[in-house]
Design a binder for these strands. Structure first.
Lengths: 268, 268
DNA sequence: GCAAATTTGTTCGTATGTATT
DNA sequence: CAATACATACGAACAAATTTG
């Protein structure tokens, strides 16, 4: 009892791709040619192509043809770092540093500030009352003009009432919000906790990251709750990254410097 | 110029699912009924259903019908912990502890031991010569009889030659390999580095995790390189988790105990 | 700049196979 | 065994995007 025909066709093409017979970026034969080659209907050929698409092996371009996907060289974000400065945690300045080290050009939009009522989940994570007022600061981040991440930080409005008024201004806080809160309110961040999940992108994310509209690329969401020295939540930062171009590192204890710079590209 | 008809149908059904009109686990109308309701051909209805499937909103069961997917309550793995013991890093005993805390029953197969030549990537990560001999110890881990993760650890064969002979025995090392290497060779692990990536599952993983064969569920791969006090790699542990039932936590600095136990289910 | 040719995208129809109830 | 429901496969036509002449 053999596999269905569309699977046989897909497997044959997959072997050619994974075996190197079809290089990344190379164009496959057209549906009509494949239809003749495998002696199948166009519908069956299209089922085979769809099977390859959902596995991220090929992509189709209307009017052009079918192409083997090119893997994007992934960007690495280190989630651990110095809790006091936030350096090394994938935020602010260190984000710039890690990126430039790889000869890439980073950029971020000016923050879009919002004042809103906390949802249940956010109120829970910030340990404030449901529907209490919070400030959100949203940024889009790019590398080499490629959309790289969407980041939104939520702060209790009480921080603004206590004097941290620049939180509600839609301008960059150059020294970083960590240093700004330390100066203004003597709030030192003592640590954070990241919660990492993988999910499907919503429409905003599909549009911003220019993801294929067929849901084959997931996004990685990190929810970082930052605490001060008395264990009180200071902020919640939600970052979203496309899973096809991002890796994350976590360092625990004493780790050599260049550890694991052996990157994840198996073929030379 | 409106969207294609299959998208309109899919959007209509999506709104019903996300708005709660169709509860998780509930059965949708059959293809034939949908065909009549939307006045479309069966093929068009199937295109709409396929669009929902690739986004993980519904699933089809031959002979039964179309159902709204049930989200699995995710299992949380904490990647940070005490570098000396490995506790709290998602390995060994702590894995048992975290799981039982949630009233779940964990289990793991006896390790399958292999002796092989290192691939380029593994040799690079363990800092040994290409094609030098390494030991692999592979385990399948379950929670409540549900396949939860596949884990393989790689050790340089030199550790065995220096006396850690139990590494090549296919039996559990009850005290944990971390303690065993400390006793036997005085190798203390000083830290580790996790590299987290998201990718599509291979056929082994699809079979073991019972993932849908349509590639809509990704897996999360963590590659943990463990170092001793002189910065020498001791082992590489590769763990694979299905993305639809796993979350990860990373603690940095000082973090309150019950932090973020506010779980990720938005609806009550 | 435009028309033709090429290629994938959408939609209809029909028939048969396979899994479940 | 029969009924039901999804899966696979054939065919046909037109639309939309892109490249080519």
């Amino acid at each position: 009892m053999p596999d269905p025909m569309y699977r046989q066709i897909a497997d044959d093409l997959r072997r050619q791709i994974e075996g190197g017979g079809l290089a990344p970026g190379e164009q496959l034969r057209t549906e009509l040619e494949l239809r003749e080659k495998y002696n199948a209907s166009r519908h069956t050929v299209r089922d085979a192509i769809r099977w390859l698409i959902t596995r991220g092996l090929v992509e189709t371009r209307p009017g052009q043809g079918i192409f083997v996907v090119q893997k994007i060289s992934p960007f690495l974000t280190t989630l651990t770092g110095d809790p006091r400065t936030g350096f090394g945690g994938g935020e602010g300045d260190i984000y710039i540093m890690e990126v430039t080290a790889g000869a890439r050009v980073p950029a971020a939009t000016a923050p879009r500030v919002g004042i809103q009522q906390a949802t249940n989940q956010i109120a829970d994570e910030l340990q404030v009352e449901d529907n209490s007022t919070i400030v959100s600061r949203h940024q889009q981040r790019f590398i080499d003009d490629t959309p790289w991440s969407l980041q939104t930080s939520f702060y209790p409005m009480s921080l603004v009432e206590r004097g941290a008024i620049r939180l509600i201004q839609a301008t960059d806080i150059m020294e970083g919000t960590v240093a700004y809160l330390a100066e203004t309110l003597r709030i030192e961040q003592a640590g954070w906790r990241d919660l990492i999940t993988v999910r499907n992108p919503d429409e905003t994310e599909i549009a911003f990251f220019k993801l294929p509209d067929d849901g084959r690329v997931s996004v990685i969401e990190t929810r970082r709750t930052v605490y001060d020295e008395i264990g009180q939540p200071v902020r919640l930062t939600v970052s979203v990254y496309p899973a096809d171009r991002n890796q994350f590192a976590v360092n625990v204890g004493s780790v050599p410097d260049e550890a694991g710079s052996g990157n994840a590209s198996p073929r030379p």
